Simulated assay, not measured.
Amino acid sequence: MSAVIFIPARYASTRYPGKPLVELTGATGVAKSLIRRSWEAAQTVKGASAVYVLTDDDRIAEAARGFGADVLMTSSDARNGTERCAEGIAQLAQEPDTVVNLQGDAPLTPPWFVEALIDAMQDEAVQMATPVLKCDHETLSNFVSDRHAGRVGGTTAVMRADGTALYFSKEVLPYVGNLETPPEVWHHVGVYAYRPAALRAYMSWAEGPLERAEGLEQLRFLENGTPVTCVPVDGQGRVFWELNNPVDVNRIEGVLKKEGIA
């Protein structure tokens, strides 16, 4: 089964404009852009035949080509990374069996998360898959403090018994009344694997009210009856965090130093 990785990146983020080019300092004191760190993370994934940065912004494209990335230019009409991936796959000479969408704001994504998705897509019944990570106390505390401060932090997932998604939310679900004895909360990791046919179907659907309210692109699949398979992954001690707000820069740099990531 063939798989390619797409890294969608846009400059005009509502919450954090220009964040793909924000520099993050690693363990050796070297600063690299967010998009470069995401691309370097993708290079370590086993089972992917190619990695592309997808963008509609010349500044991001120039920076990506500068560190050696292959770039596909997409339209400014793409409203989210999934739509950008659908535009990207149309530009490939040969259609892969699986497209992986590795969010450009998640440089701490371990390669085994993506490899688990590629493995899950070996089941031909799976149309789309995404990883979920059981929250440790530190991550859950960050989620709760962000929401109390009015910031949007990570995304949580609630699932059926068969592992398919019931819902995704930027709220902390289920409700956490006490951090000392919290319920089981699953952090949705912003990586997706799709069948090309699922991407084409996605483009045929209008944005729904849940997707619009939450700002979560994967809800369009649920709103149109396409199951999303949640793949539990093990963080193996690594704190996973996305760059959603300026406050996340220090959090991510702390993990880069802790993990010895240059």
Rank of each mutant, 00 (worst) to 15 (best):
D146Q: 13
A120I: 02
N101R: 12
V172E: 01
I89W: 03
A149L: 03
N80G: 11
L117K: 04
G177M: 02
L92V: 02
L92R: 06
Q122Y: 01
E124W: 01
G68N: 07
F143Y: 08
A78C: 01
A64H: 00
L179H: 07
A116R: 07
L102T: 02
L92D: 07
T130C: 09
Q91E: 15
T156F: 02
L92T: 10
S169W: 14
V176M: 11
G154Q: 13
D97V: 02
E138K: 13
Q103S: 14
F67C: 05
V152W: 00
E95N: 03
Q127M: 01
Y175M: 12
T164A: 09
D146P: 06
Q122C: 06
T109V: 15
L72W: 12
Y167H: 12
D119L: 06
T181N: 14
H187K: 09
A64N: 01
A61G: 12
N101G: 07
M73G: 11
G163P: 10
D162N: 13
V99L: 00
A116E: 06
L173K: 15
Y175C: 10
V172Q: 04
S76F: 04
F143R: 04
N142D: 14
V176Q: 15
R160V: 06
I89E: 08
S145A: 14
G153C: 04
H187M: 12
P110F: 08
L133I: 00
A116W: 07
N80K: 03
A106N: 03
S76R: 15
T156R: 13
P182G: 00
H187R: 09
V114H: 03
A63D: 05
L102S: 01
A61S: 15
L72P: 14
G163K: 10
H148K: 15
G163E: 04
V152I: 11
L140Q: 03
P174E: 04
T98Y: 02
N142S: 10
A86L: 03
D146K: 11
A125P: 03
A63K: 02
S76K: 15
G163S: 01
A116M: 09
K134H: 13
D146M: 10
G66P: 10
A149E: 00
V152M: 10
T164I: 03
E180R: 14
K170H: 13
D77R: 09
P131G: 06
L166D: 08
A120L: 11
Y167F: 06
H187C: 03
E83M: 07
V185G: 02
V100C: 08
V158W: 08
M159I: 13
G150I: 05
T74D: 05
V176A: 08
T156E: 09
D105R: 07
M121A: 05
N80I: 02
H137R: 14
A125L: 04
Y167K: 13
Q122M: 08
D136G: 15
D119A: 14
W186L: 10
T139C: 11
A120P: 07
W112K: 14
D70Q: 07
L133H: 12
F67W: 00
P111S: 08
E115M: 04
T109W: 06
D146S: 13
P131Q: 10
E184Q: 14
N101L: 15
